[in-house]
Simulated scan of single mutants.
Amino acid sequence: MFTGIIETKGKIVKASPINSGIEFQIQTEWDKPDLSVGDSVAINGACMTVTTFQEKGNIFSFYTSYKSLELTNLSKLHVGGSVNLERAMSAGQRFGGHMVQGHVDGVGKIHSRKTIESDSVEEFWVECPESLIRYLVKKGSITVDGVSLTIVEVENRLFQLILIPETLRKTNAMSWEVGKIVNLEVDVLAKYIENFMELRFSK
């Protein structure tokens, strides 16, 4: 389980095709990483397992299968690229975002971006797959590339986000240009409610 509060960014230093997937190496910016082999880390919001960790250099590896590559934007990662990182939450920590599983529901595309205030507040409109639109509500939560964000407006297949400078600085959102593919995870509570209602009224 994750919260959507990005801890740090990482840089892709190696990408090696292997066993119907890709093994990535990421250099992190954690000051005191406590990663171990087998730990779960959200990479742009997709839950992956640490396969190796080198404390010297803060470098860890993870393997992603062809299926994960197909369903997420991890297939578009390249050496030198930046990713959002969040370790799985631990008991007793502050819960600053919302419940995030690290199970990407689909990918969206940045439709537009513009600065709306002189202090670099950015407005984004994101195109969403038709299958996910029913889970989006004004002032509801959504995870975009692992970042817990609040939906400002929903219009047809587009939803609006407003990002403050702190979010832009701490995440890879600064690189979200028009056409950029981003991972989306809708609020799991919406999916539970939908499933409950379908079961209730199907009887």
Score class of each variant (00 low, 15 high):
R87V: 05
V83K: 02
V152L: 11
G106P: 00
G92N: 07
T115V: 13
V83Y: 03
I142S: 04
S90W: 10
E86D: 01
W125H: 08
W125E: 05
L71F: 13
S118Q: 10
L74Y: 08
G81D: 07
K139Q: 12
C128K: 08
A91N: 09
S148T: 01
L85E: 05
Y135E: 08
L85W: 02
S90Y: 09
V144A: 08
Y135T: 08
K139E: 11
Q93G: 04
S75N: 14
I110W: 02
H98T: 08
I142A: 05
S148I: 07
V121I: 12
S118W: 01
P129F: 08
Q93F: 12
G108A: 06
I151H: 08
V137S: 14
M99I: 15
V154M: 03
M89A: 12
H98P: 03
R94G: 03
E117R: 15
V147M: 10
V107E: 04
K114Q: 12
V104A: 01
M89G: 02
H103S: 02
S120L: 12
S82H: 07
D105F: 01
E122M: 15
V121T: 14
E70L: 12
V83W: 01
I151N: 00
D119M: 06
S141Q: 09
H103F: 09
T115M: 13
E155P: 00
F95S: 02
A88D: 04
E153I: 06
H111Y: 15
S90P: 00
N73V: 05
H103I: 03
L77Y: 12
G92E: 03
V152T: 15
H103D: 08
N84A: 00
Y135L: 04
V83F: 03
E86C: 01
V147R: 00
E86Y: 05
E117V: 09
I142M: 07
V100Q: 03
E86S: 01
E123F: 06
D145H: 03
G81L: 07
N73P: 01
S131H: 14
L136G: 07
P129A: 06
L132K: 10
V121F: 10
K67D: 14
S82K: 13
R94K: 13
G97N: 04
E70I: 00
G106I: 05
E122L: 13
D145S: 05
R87P: 02
S90L: 15
V147I: 14
H111Q: 09
V83R: 02
W125Y: 13
L136T: 09
